[in-house]
Amino acid sequence: MAVRVQETGFDPGAELNAFTAAASGAGAVVSFTGVVRDLDTGGLDRMEIEHYPGMTESAIAKIEAEAVRRWRLADSLVIHRYGALAAGETIMMVATAAPHRADAFQAAEFLMDYLKSRAPFWKKEVTADGAAWVAARDADEDALSRW
């Protein structure tokens, strides 16, 4: 189980390869990579991600521990960036390793759903016209109820 909260970029392919190599014998590895999306109208200058140092790491560790309690996981990895990111940059990734794919898929979805609404990150979209905080979506909160 690993949590990394960092400002610097990372290579999701290299991370996945290292994770898969370390989880040898797991049988199933699932990964999700989140990428900064441009606005529908284009024109995103940058996305600024703020977080709560200390709580961020402990909140993600708690979410991971809950995933381990619910599913048979060999390993999991969460990387989440903060700071200023341009459209197309990798924001975060989640990887899970399990003996069988159902556990790996479900645990990855669970981690994503909880990261969206329970890890203390806030996104702000900056354009030439100004900046706006991204509002939380009801759908993200509702997604937690299925777990």
Partner: peptide, 26 residues
């Protein structure tokens, strides 16, 4: 103290309280 809480939560012994909008990670 870095744990999500309710507004009626006690501050007895608390060292740190944080206020923020709903989170938008991921």
């Amino acid at each position: 103290d870095q744990e999500l809480a309710d507004f009626d939560a006690s501050l007895d012994g608390a060292r740190e309280v944080a206020f923020f909008p709903p989170m938008t990670g991921g």
